[in-house]
Design a protein around this nucleic acid. Sequence first.
DNA 1: CGAAAGTTTGAGTTGCTTCAACCGCGGTGG
DNA 2: CCACCGCGGTTGAAGCAACTCAAACTTTCG
Lengths: 225, 225
Amino acid sequence: MANRLDTGALLGHLPLFRNLDARQLALMARACQEVRIAKHGFAFQRGDPANGLYVVAVGTIKLAIPSPSGQEKVLEFFTAGQAFGEAVMFLDKPYMVQAQALEDTLLLWIDKQDIYAAIDHDPSFARRMLAGLSLRLHALVQDIEAVNLQNATQRVAGYLLRQPREDGQIHLSVNKNVVASKLGLTPETLSRLLGQLSGKGYIAVEGRDVQLLDAAALEALLYGR
Amino acid sequence: MANRLDTGALLGHLPLFRNLDARQLALMARACQEVRIAKHGFAFQRGDPANGLYVVAVGTIKLAIPSPSGQEKVLEFFTAGQAFGEAVMFLDKPYMVQAQALEDTLLLWIDKQDIYAAIDHDPSFARRMLAGLSLRLHALVQDIEAVNLQNATQRVAGYLLRQPREDGQIHLSVNKNVVASKLGLTPETLSRLLGQLSGKGYIAVEGRDVQLLDAAALEALLYGR
DNA sequence: CGAAAGTTTGAGTTGCTTCAACCGCGGTGG
DNA sequence: CCACCGCGGTTGAAGCAACTCAAACTTTCG
């Protein structure tokens, strides 16, 4: 029991489950299962049936659309405390995306039925669920906007500006290959563009650390011209 | 009262509101407002605050992301009975898309508060709402897949195959300019590709009517090579 | 320490766009 | 009634942004 995870406490801290009452929370904590995924392993793949949702306890998950030709389009990352895989659960369709661990990861899996029970029992849980899906939708629309209406440079600039930073310092949470895929670019193109922005003095890149030297200039790229 | 719309009956027929009880439905029917939008008019534009959702009573609405340069990316169309604009309602963000009428259109508008009330009152309503959002999400992911992992020809083939048809006969619900935008193409490119597919004998195009002559060949384009 | 993965740089290619001209058709006003 | 306009659509020629292919260099990790 030493290495045992306190699932109740963990769930209770998630925004999604925040004001679920104690009984309901305990029920859910008991119902959920721990799933360990090794680095590069999959929580689920395209075509798998969706019978529940996942919550990241430890680690990082990459959600991506695979393609027959081996390339993939990265949609989103999830780290400790975030839920994923909820959307398809409500339809009766198989996953059209895959969830891959970027490092050794511990997930909690909650059955569809238990989620439904929580929805029926607590309307505020339903609202949180709705808000969660809406947020996901919002992110996807942003992605679509980026790919369809912005050129490569603007996508990179936009991405950098959206990253969390402390005094202009950004640390990329994933490697540049993955960032490139998220932006709908090849690694080569991303590398060249970062080099270009560095050359102009807008940013300084060192490995996964990026310093924003001239955020205003980046915004100008995004909007003006 | 002759021209008066029976909102209660209309709402009651929507999948979203199907098994809302009579009292709740009546409440909602009384709460909702009729909104008339002339062709080319907007139900809302990017940046507008979202305080409720819309249901199409009569007409067609085009949801699109506008861009400063005047072009736009079409996301989806909505016709009689479909709801839209629900997603942003749950976040406290303004719309990032615009809803434009493709013809004279009559909408019903329902306030956020009334929706919340229905969610709290009837868990099955919440589930329907969740399913609705999930469906929207699914569609967006398909869109992203198309733009990122398929070439222009595949996108066109995929689109045609997804359209409702009777013995291979498709009728485009919107003009080709709009279809092109939905596919992330220029009108010129779409025209060329349709011509090309016609040339190969896979389809026959006449105005907005498209005959699928060889659906298998189109699927082959999508998957194999 | 060596193999594999990640990153950068260079050179050449291409799929789609852009620009431009043209056609046909429906509506509209003189 | 017909000339005119404007929009939707097609076609051609030229351009370019991003990709592909290839090779070298760097970092990570077993």
